[in-house]
Design a protein around this nucleic acid. Structure first.
Lengths: 216, 216
DNA sequence: ACACCTTTTGACAGTTACTCTCACTTCATG
DNA sequence: CATGAAGTGAGAGTAACTGTCAAAAGGTGT
């Protein structure tokens, strides 16, 4: 979502991809992670609203200025969305003549699987915390909804390629945002049910309420 | 404070529905309108961000405290959504055996028509300003998206009645929120095209990308 | 008219997210 | 190592809120 610094933020501690980078870049990644982790632990302890940016800065051992330099808003600390590029990649890997709903289903499935298996347990923990915050804290949810439109544009592009339409077609845009709204609601439903339901199944049922966007 | 000595009187006359109310209630309605109109004029002059609550309070001749008492947040001043009850009423008036998409189409059509014809010209002006702010100012758009979920619940209820499902069914909720996302995107599309397109037609095309939610 | 109670208001102080500026440190490079 | 660039911290400032409390205004009984 608001992760427009062009740099793909990595999840694994000081990732391999960063090895060749200068000390500067590596430090940036470190403080970024430090701020995130400080935030997560504080939010777990006291809740989101009770956690101030100053506390976060203290625990991350940086100044408040630096926190704001790394994240434009407090919500962005918990809500950095690095899955858009992954989703796009997975979507592109599907055969071009497959119905878009099918492609989406598989791409989302795959993305979720990767998020759950490729990450260590404590990160899965944080992911659940994040999802919960998205649903429960209005500010975070708002931001999430904003990021929905970014992902929506991504889906628009995929839809355009598949259906021979323009990515700015009303039908394309409307269909994409409809999908996003539906998927978001599915996630909320899932969290409300304490994450007990089988998420892939919920997503299947969600996508099943749509008809395929016809080719032009 | 806001004596009706002529000069500071609001453009909009106190509505008939308020006639029988006590002085207290009537005053409340008045200050509410005063705050709104102060906000609209200031925003027209300087833009949303440059307009502070203090300025709004000054122009509306109330204290800043009062502004916050009437509207929990600045965004809420421009974004009061009085159309939910109307939409619900119109939806209920449609025949119960009509496909839900049809009902929605007519209800939305009717609601729009009423909004455009029943209001004096300057209110239409303000409506356009509001719509534009919804699309352009992130904070306002966020709030709008939040309110989307409220309207979504309303649609859920209507869908539940029509399809014999429970209003908390995943399919119902997901379908409703999909609709809301799509309709919101249609509105954004309309504003981006400088409101030149025929809005009812856009809505028809939007709803046409959905299949009907089957009865259970 | 008057007293009495309730609702509404304004003044004020405080918190917090965020912005901007500027001096200072830290890294990169020839 | 010197020189420039990038990153950081300190501090001041803004504006959206929040909470409290005393004063004012509306409503109601006698």
């Amino acid at each position: 979502m608001t992760d427009n610094d062009g740099m793909t933020t990595a999840r694994t501690p000081v990732p391999e991809a960063a090895r060749h980078l200068g000390l500067r870049e590596r430090k940036k990644i470190k403080t970024r992670m430090a701020i995130r982790e400080a935030t997560y632990s504080l939010v777990k302890e006291q809740g989101y609203d009770a956690t101030t940016v100053e506390q976060i800065a203290d625990r991350a051992e940086v100044s408040p200025s630096t926190v704001f330099r790394y994240f434009p808003a407090k919500e962005d600390i918990v809500l950095t969305d690095e899955y858009d590029p992954l989703l796009e990649k997975l979507l592109r890997e599907r055969p071009a003549d497959e119905p878009v709903l099918e492609s989406l289903r598989w791409a989302i499935r795959e993305a979720m699987a990767m998020a759950l298996t490729d990450n260590p347990a404590y990160e899965q923990d944080e992911m659940l915390l994040r999802v919960r915050l998205m649903v429960e804290v209005p500010q975070v949810r708002s931001r999430l909804m904003e990021s929905m439109s970014v992902t929506g544009r991504l889906v628009c592009r995929a839809l355009a390629e598949r259906t021979g339409r323009h990515e700015n077609d009303l039908e394309v845009r409307v269909y994409a945002m409809g999908l996003m709204g539906a998927l978001l609601e599915a996630m909320i439903y899932w969290v409300e049910g304490d994450c007990r339901d089988d998420l892939p199944e919920l997503i299947d049922r969600t996508l099943a309420t749509f008809k395929d966007l016809p080719r032009r």
